[in-house]
Design a protein around this nucleic acid. Structure first.
Lengths: 224, 224
DNA sequence: CCAAAAGTGTTTTCCATACACCCATGC
DNA sequence: GCATGGGTGTATGGAAAACACTTTTGG
């Protein structure tokens, strides 16, 4: 007897939109580094979409959880061994992949810049403002846009920003991360009042910065 | 040469958490009907989980979009031919289905009570407050809970409530739908002030209700 | 001194909530 | 009359936004 299990069925892959913060060396000893949002992309070395930049990911094994698949691929392809992950959306268009019907369970990932190794392979970090649709393979440009919109909305009602920051950070650093994601900067005094309940102050301060030292904070324990 | 396409890979199915409003006949000519949230469930007629209530859905064909798969199954199993659908989450636990590795792309669906036919098959509407985990097959109870939480948060910042209402409705009807979903009722005067920008008044009113007629409104055009 | 960032305080505007009240209908 | 829902207005408290200002550092 024929069962549904005898028929051809779609392949399943996972893809990660892994984001972190990049800080560029300032042109004056007084200035703080510029804060930008960047994404990890992987250059394909075979067809289809050879030499295009794509999201790290791969096919989902029959006995593997998608999150584990993502972590396995991030470690393999970009030497990333720790990040925060959350399911983003499942992309299912019929012609996503010319080889076969492949649906992709996409994840949004966030990590701290410092944890990002200088991996000498096909994986590179790009400023999200710098990438253009033409250079991106498959429907991954669309996935990236979906992830950025999701991130913009999620940082307004959750704690996930802290996944982009080191353990200890200044309020200006924190505000710059918000600004990099949302594309606009609120007044510092208002930002502080709003955010202060989400952080815990320490006794430490920055130094040697050419301006007044800033107090370091850590994230306050609580729900996401 | 062996390719990834030669290996066994997970099966993919779709499941719909289709919700609508039920109104029960009041015990007094003065009262309005009670407003409850209900869900469409389907009684399985074969193993596994024979005789358990499950979400309508089915396996995703190789050339089919998940949303079309949902609509096809809703029509087939419950004679539902129109509803609003949005992807909810993709459930991937390893032992969701004893027959094989099956991942499920779950959708949240909303429809107007009036469009719900009285289908005489294995599909029935249940009040969401009345269902218990023991009667639900697979991991569908978990999917339902996820859907209800999502709905609660989405009605606070989108327009999706209107998918649960007829074209024309009173503000009290609208408020009762919010109350049924959120589990608590705000003061009517405050609700009106908050909601008024989302609706467009008509010249029509209710009548024969044992109390003052209520103005009918329609949803205002705009973004979801 | 001064550029840059760190940090504080005050005012204004807006919105959610609470409260108090009147109106219209069918029986 | 009266039970029920329809509908309006005002007061209050707190958060967000706008604005103005002082402090601290390294060169």
């Amino acid at each position: 007897m024929n069962s549904i299990f005898d028929y051809d069925h779609p392949f399943v892959c996972t893809d990660a939109v892994l984001l972190s913060i990049s800080t560029t060396v300032p042109d004056s000893y007084r200035k703080l580094p510029e804060t930008n949002l960047r994404i990890l992309l992987y250059k394909r070395d075979s067809d289809p979409h050879k030499d295009k930049w794509c999201l790290p990911g791969g096919f989902l094994s029959i006995d593997e959880l998608p999150e584990n698949s993502i972590r396995r691929n991030l470690l393999l392809k970009a030497d990333v061994d720790e990040c925060w992950l959350e399911q983003l959306y499942t992309f299912c268009d019929l012609n996503r992949d010319s080889r076969a019907r492949v649906i992709s369970i996409a994840y949004l990932g966030l990590m701290n810049e410092a944890a990002s190794k200088n991996y000498q392979g096909n994986a590179t970090w790009f400023d999200v403002d710098a990438i253009s649709e033409a250079d991106i393979g498959f429907d991954h440009y669309n996935i990236i846009k979906t992830a950025l919109v999701r991130l913009q909305s999620k940082i307004t009602y959750t704690n996930i920003v802290f996944n982009l920051l080191p353990e200890e950070f200044t309020l200006t650093q924190l505000q710059n991360v918000y600004a990099a994601i949302l594309g606009k900067k609120e007044q510092a005094s208002n930002f502080r009042k709003r955010i202060i309940s989400m952080v815990q102050e320490t006794d430490k301060h920055t130094s040697n910065k050419g301006h007044r030292p800033a107090r370091l904070y850590v994230k306050k324990a609580g729900l996401y």
